[in-house]
């Protein structure tokens, strides 16, 4: 889940009777699972909320390349290096699919980049944690991509056509990401004592930040109701978090690793695990910019954008020159 705390601009959920005919026709389409397309009528709040949500998701894919890119030159084997390169390249593609989807709503790609760099738009809190060891690359694939899949699979059915199609493409590629991560974890967990310790340490550090990816608890999730009525959010934060824990704990057990939660216990009655909530104060601090790597991540994006400006401008100038020469020759 790469979109957290997306502010919904709707003013409470209206009933069909309270809506003007245009909005009622729109909501009835959403209710009937008919996709909304770029040029269809849509409420302004729907458009704005989607730009925020898809934009945040796109930024997360791009910023998410940084913690992993950190290990490309230090991957332990050539094969691991090629795999990691392929994964990071996928993330760039995922960012592109999502930026394209957001652009259909009337915002340009450069505007979105500027909003990220000025802090007006956010990216997922998870990417503000550093990747300190090679085992972190395993943990990121296994837990972070695992949590992302949990959210992205239902979003394939979201009401906005371009967003839904982007999610379908992304989900097709995402499974490789999680499996390569778990593959790294298996290698480490079945390796030397030192490797096992690294794997456990990575799980310790990434467990709670991964749980935070689903956003605050439902009781504190103020914008959910409208987003759910619009079907741009399909499941509640707590529901997805529970699903993630139920799926992940047995995978940790298989690795012989311990989930860093003393209260974790199987609850026969509800058919799921009881588990501790993450530290929500930490979550809000990281969102506000006080996480361990916030500064570095934004600086890296700014540097890439500023230092790349002459390349973008040069290619534009070259394309214009060619176009002019072609017209002159005709």
């Amino acid at each position: 889940m790469y979109a957290q705390m997306v502010k919904s601009t709707g003013t409470g959920v209206k009933s069909l009777d309270e809506m003007e005919p245009e909005e009622r026709a729109f909501q009835e389409k959403v209710d009937a699972d008919i996709r909304i397309e770029a040029r269809d009528w849509m409420p302004e709040g729907y458009r704005k909320t989607l730009i925020r949500q898809i934009g945040q998701h796109a930024h997360s894919e791009i910023v998410g390349q940084l913690p992993e890119g950190n290990w490309i030159t230090r991957a332990p084997t050539l094969e691991r290096k090629m795999i990691l390169l392929a994964k990071v390249q996928d993330e760039a593609g995922h960012g592109l699919y999502l930026y394209s989807a957001a652009e259909t709503l009337g915002v340009t790609r450069d505007e979105m980049t500027e909003m990220l760099l000025s802090g007006k738009m956010k990216y997922s809190s998870i990417f503000n944690y550093p990747t300190l060891t090679w085992a972190d690359i395993g943990a990121v694939g296994w837990l972070v991509d695992g949590a992302a899949i949990m959210n992205q699979v239902p979003l394939q059915r979201t009401s906005y056509g371009p967003y839904s199609r982007a999610m379908i493409r992304i989900c097709k590629e995402e499974s490789f990401h999680q499996r390569q991560g778990y593959d790294i974890m298996m290698k480490m967990a079945k390796g030397s004592e030192a490797q096992k310790r690294m794997a456990q340490d990575a799980l310790n550090r990434f467990w709670y930040p991964s749980l935070m990816m689903f956003g605050p608890s439902d009781a504190n999730s103020v914008h959910s109701e409208q987003s759910m009525a619009w079907k741009i959010k399909i499941n509640s934060n707590d529901e997805l978090r529970r699903k993630f824990v139920d799926q992940t704990v047995p995978q940790a057990e298989y690795l012989g690793l311990t989930v860093p939660d003393d209260t974790l216990a199987w609850n026969e009655e509800k058919g799921g695990y009881d588990f501790a909530e993450p530290d929500w104060d930490e979550f809000f601090d990281v969102l506000k910019g006080a996480g361990p790597a916030n500064h570095d991540r934004l600086e890296a994006r700014k540097t890439a954008w500023d230092d790349g400006a002459w390349v973008r401008d040069g290619l534009t100038a070259h394309a214009e020159k060619k176009r002019t020469a072609k017209v002159a020759a005709e």
Binding site: Q89, Y97, R109, R165, R169, H318, A319, R323
Partner: peptide, 22 residues
């Protein structure tokens, strides 16, 4: 899908990288 590029030739190169990786 779609992408931004300075010209058509570059658009083809980028499309190859983004949309035919598998």
């Amino acid at each position: 899908g779609s992408l931004h590029a300075p010209d058509a030739e570059t658009a083809i190169k980028n499309a190859r990288d983004v949309y035919t990786r598998r």
